[in-house]
Write a protein that binds this DNA or RNA. Sequence first.
DNA 1: AACCAACCTACCCGATTGGATAGGTCGGGT
DNA 2: ACCCGACCTATCCAATCGGGTAGGTTGGTT
Lengths: 205, 205
Amino acid sequence: MRVLIADDHDLLRDTLALWFRQENIDVTLARDLPSALDAVAKADAPFDLILLDYGMSGMNGLDGLELALREVTGARIALMSGTAPREIAEKALEMGAAGFLPKTLSAKSLVNAVRFMAMGEQFAPIDFMTAPAEVAPLNALAEKLSPRETQVLKGLCEGKANKEIARDLGIQEPTVKLHMKTLYRKIGAHNRTQAAMIAKEAGLF
Amino acid sequence: MRVLIADDHDLLRDTLALWFRQENIDVTLARDLPSALDAVAKADAPFDLILLDYGMSGMNGLDGLELALREVTGARIALMSGTAPREIAEKALEMGAAGFLPKTLSAKSLVNAVRFMAMGEQFAPIDFMTAPAEVAPLNALAEKLSPRETQVLKGLCEGKANKEIARDLGIQEPTVKLHMKTLYRKIGAHNRTQAAMIAKEAGLF
DNA sequence: AACCAACCTACCCGATTGGATAGGTCGGGT
DNA sequence: ACCCGACCTATCCAATCGGGTAGGTTGGTT
């Protein structure tokens, strides 16, 4: 089996090569996307699988994957990344990638996954793909809000009245109302229902 | 490699066996859960993988999987089903199943998946697992509501005031309020924000 | 020390909402 | 004809909400 590994991280690349060779997998190495494509062009036989680091030079997000899929017709190409969120992995697989490998994968699983993908299957770690939809966009909203405002918004999202929220937080109702008003402005809502929907939409709570 | 297939559908079971034997996989067959567990007990060597049909006799949903996992310690057990929704697959995998095989899988992929799982990996078809979270619960709520109530609820979810909703629907405001009140009762909400959150939660709109 | 920004608290008032009650219309079924 | 369910309209009142205004605290700057 012939595999091409393209990663700009020398240590990782060599470690992978070592593991793969122990498993009798023929490995070719590259340190960026252009030289990876170059290696494909020069190779005397097609690769069974091409591994691309999502963050390496020349990739530019998923554009690099798209380029590689177009350039190397019929190739099976998988993405590797230690940091990319699930959404990226999903898009890559939709675009036709053979798989997505988080760098947290054990060496054994990695070899298994590579063999699996080389057989024409799609691979991605189940737990990674079914993980909840990221908490990053949460910050975009939540970091604008003060702690109190966040608590108030939480109460709002549970359908509570201002009075209830005040009791639960141990503060007075008028205060809750002020927090409401200011957080409306911060998140761009005109009333409490809109605020709740916006928070929900952002994946808050 | 030794695999146990338990399925109450004779044709499917024999077809699978045929495929697996062509691939030099040693197959043992069973037609329900008890006889599958029986076969495991009687076997002279442990199975590399056990395939259980989700719908067969003795399974009783995921209880059968739980029983099998407890009964056959250290076994790798995968679920097969042509009908089970994604949620079932997710729960099965969380419980420790080795994988989930929809019966729509091609024979080739099925063999690949079986080998993959036998190596200790978890398998489930990517597209199946990332499919949107079903639109069934939508009906559970929506079908209780009259057309008008649904329209009102939609306006509510957009954060509109009763007056706006009335204008958009070409009816009077008091009418909107009445619809609100009745739909609160139908979906179990105490106020408009709760109603909006419940609708959102159910995937409505 | 004086200042400022960000946060929390508080009161008041007009607008909106929640809920009860009471009719009126339209179509389908006994 | 009768009843019944689903829909629309209406009025009244108490509770809640939205927004303006103002004072108090804390922590960091000038």
